[in-house]
């Protein structure tokens, strides 16, 4: 291997190395299990929202598909999980979660063909239309879904037959956090793989992708399907942790809020949805204690302000903040990333 080739190999792999910021983020996330037991209910919601936002980031931040209908997958899987538990079809929650994810992924696969072509507006309308159609269906078949009253009488069995859900949300939080972490690891692997690189390329220039031999449509179908599966698992988690599912899981507001969450955190680096979810939930919690009814106003204002400031400027701030956090973390535990940064680390290829 020539020195240049070695440098190239090193640089290509280095992007995927865990940074101090990332390690700190997950340590804090898991530490909250013990440090913030009284906040577990809201943290559960946060973890679910984070997973949901992660699914949107995969298609919007990496593949460039604007969607205002991610709730379609969230809601469908939410109802599936609820019905499965209610009628005892699948009792074990983890299995039910996986099945719900598969159902949502199947729906994502079928509808992915609708978003392959067309402008942003067309995609927006089609994704929105699909979720509204499902909302109408759920409303129409209220004998199954419970309609406006919601799906009642869902009882969720203990996880793996061992861990019973409790009313303080302790079990639920640990469960959701682990699912989020596993899904995140999968997404992280994926975006640093050749497949993930091709998605970024498609977002940048789909025409050129065809000209370097990338089957653009097949890639978009694949990522849309996977993202639908993640969104579905988030929906199933919500049903399982609340033992309830109502029509608003399919609503436009849910998809619109999701966009906001992701925008707060920033798109295209995976942590945007997670950080956005934390900020959003705690902001909601805080504002709700001040003016519960007009929460929406502040959400709207935030959106307007973010756009007026400019998302690229926001992204720059995010990056600076992350770098500062990472420095802080590195210093705090006296840990140096060592010479690997310079490219002299062990070669594993």
């Amino acid at each position: 291997m020539t020195p240049l080739a070695a440098d190239v190999a090193q640089r290509l792999k280095r992007r995927a190395r865990w940074s101090g910021f990332e390690i700190a983020f997950w340590i804090v996330a898991f530490a909250s299990i013990w440090l913030l037991p009284q906040k577990h209910l809201i943290l559960t919601e946060t973890a679910i929202l984070a997973l949901f936002a992660l699914s949107l980031d995969l298609i919007l931040g990496y593949a460039g598909i604007i969607s205002l209908g991610q709730a379609a997958f969230f809601g469908t899987a939410g109802y599936f999980a609820g019905l499965a538990a209610k009628y005892g079809l699948i009792n074990e929650p983890v299995l039910a979660l996986l099945c719900s994810g598969l159902v949502a992924a199947a729906l994502g696969f079928v509808t992915s063909f609708l978003v392959l072509r067309g402008s942003d507006l067309t995609r927006l309308m089609v994704t929105l239309g699909v979720s509204l159609m499902l909302g109408e269906l759920a409303n129409r078949y209220s004998n199954i879904t419970g309609g406006a009253d919601g799906l009642q009488g869902v009882t969720v069995a203990p996880i793996l037959g061992l861990f019973q859900f409790d009313m303080f949300g302790h079990t639920g939080y640990v469960y959701c956090l682990i699912v989020l972490f596993v899904c995140f690891l999968i997404a992280r692997r994926l975006v640093y793989s050749p497949f993930g690189l091709s998605l970024r390329a498609i977002k940048g220039n789909a025409l050129r992708c065809g000209a370097v031999g990338i089957p653009v449509n097949a890639r978009l179908v694949a990522i849309y399907t996977l993202a639908a599966g993640f969104a579905g698992m988030a929906g199933a988690l919500l049903t399982q942790t609340t033992a309830f599912c109502s029509l608003d899981v399919l609503s436009l507001e849910r998809s619109a809020d999701l966009l906001l969450v992701l925008i707060i955190g920033g798109t295209g680096y995976l942590y945007g949805g997670l950080i956005g979810a934390v900020i959003y939930k705690f902001m909601q919690d805080w504002i709700a204690t001040l003016t519960p009814q007009y929460w929406q106003f502040w959400i709207g204002l935030l959106l307007v302000v973010i756009v007026l400031i400019g998302r690229d400027r926001m992204a720059a701030w995010h990056e600076a903040a992350r770098a500062a956090l990472a420095r802080l973390f590195t210093r705090a535990i006296g840990w140096r990333r060592g010479p690997a940064l310079g490219g002299a680390g062990p070669d594993r290829s």
Partner: peptide
């Protein structure tokens, strides 16, 4: 892509 690793979504690039 040419070498057929494009659908590889598990290993790192490079």
């Amino acid at each position: 892509e040419r070498l057929g690793f494009g659908i590889d979504c598990w290993r790192l690039v490079g």
